[in-house]
């Protein structure tokens, strides 16, 4: 990959993609890890399946590049395509939350809980790996619509505006859904005996 491509914006790389394979490759590399992680957070599926989805996402990005709305952030657009692809795949395979075992103990569960704890006014200093599994379980116990806003808000660290652009819903709805999702998550985590560290006196 050419080093000079590192300094080019996503939007410019996309514009070059039709005639310059290196540009498209650079764009794909830029988002590979993020999107792969996002797919895995959204669906309890194997690495191979997640890779297949990501491939499909990139093909769609390539095909639809001229339909990109420049008013939108490229990252929102590519997350939107990924989200749609995941939803399509879930519909096809009829995988529903809670029906697949969660054997993944990625450390990002800890980061998620810490972020969530901040907003819930809960101080969390240490999150065990076991707790990370429980968090993911709690997350997959949530309905898809709540899981996706929590993942985008706390794992992907997207703003409400960006989440709105990705899910194609108004910002106000995003705020409402995030609040509801947090409450649902708290309830689900209590049911799974996921106890937060007691608040410091």
């Amino acid at each position: 990959m050419n080093c000079h491509l590192n300094n080019i914006t996503d939007e410019a790389l996309l514009a070059l993609s039709e005639h310059d394979q290196d540009s498209f490759y650079a764009l794909m590399k830029r988002y590979e890890k993020k999107l792969f992680a996002y797919i895995r957070r959204m669906t309890p599926m194997s690495r191979e399946d997640a890779e297949d989805i990501l491939q499909e996402v990139y093909i769609k990005v390539y095909k639809h590049q001229k339909g990109f709305d420049p008013d939108l952030k490229f990252s929102s657009w590519i997350y939107r395509i990924t989200h749609n692809e995941v939803v399509n795949m879930l519909r096809k395979r009829k995988i529903r939350s809670g029906t697949v075992s969660i054997d993944n103990t990625e450390s990002d569960s800890g980061a998620f809980l810490a972020l969530l704890a901040d907003t819930m006014d809960i101080q969390e200093t240490y999150i065990s790996e076991e707790r990370g599994v429980k968090i993911r379980k709690a997350l997959f116990h949530l309905p898809e619509k709540y899981r996706e806003v929590l993942v985008l808000r706390y794992f992907e660290e997207k703003s409400y505006g960006e989440i709105g652009d990705i899910l194609k819903i108004p910002q106000g709805t995003v705020a409402t859904m995030v609040n509801r999702a947090k409450k649902r998550f708290e309830k689900a985590s209590r049911q799974l005996n996921l106890t937060f560290q007691e608040r410091q006196q």
Binding site: Q21, F24, Y25, M28, K29, E32, F36, R47, E51, L54, Q55, Y58, I59, Y62
Partner: peptide, 9 residues
Amino acid sequence: MKDIGKHVL
């Protein structure tokens, strides 16, 4: 993880 970008190209 395989090189997805390469596969796509």
